[in-house]
């Protein structure tokens, strides 16, 4: 617009000045994003593992448990969040509930897969050694299912990090606040790019961390070919 005295302000995708002046906001949003992710995945594991064991022990329940988690997973995030809003309002709990419901399917499915892949002769040997149902589960079956569970938790974590951004709907979207905030703030590119990059970095970081934890938890798998 040449008739204006001043040309349009620069709007770069990356700006140190933006990051410096908004460090406090970004830090607060990082805490929000991380805490929502960690709490959601932790709750999903706490709720999902007993359900997975139930599905594994009681065969007739396997189908219904996986199917209901699957239906929850199919419901679009925008739809699910809008169902929860009337219950918890525009609060952090709304986002957290939605995230947990999504992570549940990934945790349950991987745990059921892992548990059902425990070889029958191993289970037989454990029973023959005098393990009861519960101790066999805790000391034989769950450790053998651990690699599958870790894979499921990694998947759940990565998708939860991405999904937190949808929380902007109720104003609790972590880095999503930067992304959508920048868009509606006259297409300010610096916060959009910062939010997107930080989001992906967080996902990669947590994934690597969990992969490391998985390796530490399964020392017997490290001796052969590296996973």
């Amino acid at each position: 617009m040449s008739f204006l005295a001043q040309s349009a302000a620069a709007n770069p995708w990356f700006s140190w000045a933006y990051l410096r002046t908004n460090a406090d906001t970004i830090r607060a949003l990082a805490v929000e994003h991380l805490s929502l992710t960690v709490e959601a995945v932790a709750l999903a594991v706490v709720i999902g593992m007993p359900l997975a064991v139930l599905a594994y022990w009681v065969r007739p329940l396997t189908g219904p448990i996986l199917a209901s988690a699957g239906v929850l997973y199919t419901i679009p995030s925008l739809g699910l969040f809008s169902f929860i809003v009337p219950i918890f309002g525009l609060s952090r709990r709304t986002v957290l509930t939605g995230l947990v419901l999504y992570a549940l399917l990934l945790v349950i499915r991987s745990a059921v897969t892992g548990l059902s892949q425990v070889p029958a002769d191993v289970k037989e040997a454990a029973s023959a050694m005098g393990y009861g149902r519960l101790s066999r589960l805790l000391r034989v079956e769950l450790p053998l299912a651990l690699p599958a569970v870790v894979t499921g938790v990694r998947l759940a974590t990565v998708s939860t990090v991405a999904l937190v951004t949808v929380g902007v709907l109720v104003g609790r979207g972590g880095f999503g606040q930067l992304i959508i905030g920048g868009f509606w703030n006259n297409f300010h590119k610096a916060p959009i790019a910062a939010g997107a990059v930080l989001c992906i970095l967080l996902a990669v970081l947590l994934d690597l961390l969990l992969a490391g934890v998985g390796r530490l938890l399964t020392p017997w798998r490290r001796t052969g070919a590296g996973a």
Partner: peptide, 8 residues
């Protein structure tokens, strides 16, 4: 693509 937020 799992790690890329749709919103972004």
């Amino acid at each position: 693509t799992q790690a890329i937020p749709v919103v972004a």
